[in-house]
């Protein structure tokens, strides 16, 4: 039995709530958000115009982080719910602290707060960097739960379809994810949300 099998829907939601709370975020059900039909329509229009963004139907299945708000779509299994919430919580952490916490890494890092919102929306390079880090969180949670990890091609495909990126930035994202995948397969967990999930699951006896 893998840890994912020990995770009940109630347990996953409890862990998700703890994680969101630790990230200083607020958990929101996507179907409760007003005006989603309009947003869906905008995505349909952009998708029809040939932009590399999800269609309205795909958008319904996506979860999001908007500032401190973690907006979660319906219909996930317990393991999927926790992986998705962890991904979005990493974005919430990025919103509060920036791409990496201070002193955590070497190299020019990206700021949080309003800068996070601006860079994510306007700069494809920043968007890839923020997403690659959040994807790594998803990988870490899946490995913690003993679930199968997606291939690098699957991850690249997700990046290419969902974030309005050109080929050069998709390749850049793939390189970041190759490093992440190699590290996570080796059992190294480095994202704040991934490490928090590990602690929460241990506390609840899932790990």
């Amino acid at each position: 039995m893998i840890p994912a099998d020990r995770l009940t829907p109630e347990g996953a939601l409890l862990a998700a709530r703890e994680l969101v709370s630790a990230s200083h975020g607020v958990l929101v059900r996507k179907s409760d958000v007003p005006g989603m039909a309009i947003v869906r329509g905008v995505f349909d229009a952009l998708h029809a115009a040939g932009l590399a963004v999800p269609s309205g139907a795909e958008f319904d299945r996506y979860s999001h982080a908007l500032g401190p708000f973690v907006v979660i779509a319906d219909g996930f299994s317990p393991a999927e719910l926790l992986a998705v919430v962890a991904h979005e919580c990493e974005h919430v952490r990025q919103f509060w602290e920036g791409e990496y916490a201070k002193g955590q890494t070497v190299g020019a890092t990206l700021n949080g707060g309003a800068a996070f919102a601006w860079l994510y929306l306007v700069e494809p390079e920043a968007r890839v960097r923020f997403e690659a880090r959040a994807y790594r969180t998803t990988l870490e949670v899946l490995r913690l739960l003993g679930a199968a990890l997606p291939s690098i091609d699957d991850l690249t495909d997700s990046l290419a379809r969902g974030y309005a990126l050109d080929a050069a930035h998709v390749t850049f994202g793939r390189q970041l994810l190759e490093s992440a995948l190699a590290s996570v397969r080796n059992g190294v967990y480095t994202t704040t949300s991934g490490v928090r999930v590990e602690a929460i699951l241990k506390r609840h006896g899932v790990l």
């Binding site: 955590q104 190299g107 050069a168 850049f172 390189q175 970041l176 992440a180």
Partner: peptide
């Protein structure tokens, strides 16, 4: 620290 050079020619940390 693992780093990747971005399309904008920045050494980007791929991890902590």
């Amino acid at each position: 620290t693992p780093q990747v050079c971005s399309p904008g020619q920045r050494w980007t940390p791929a991890d902590v």
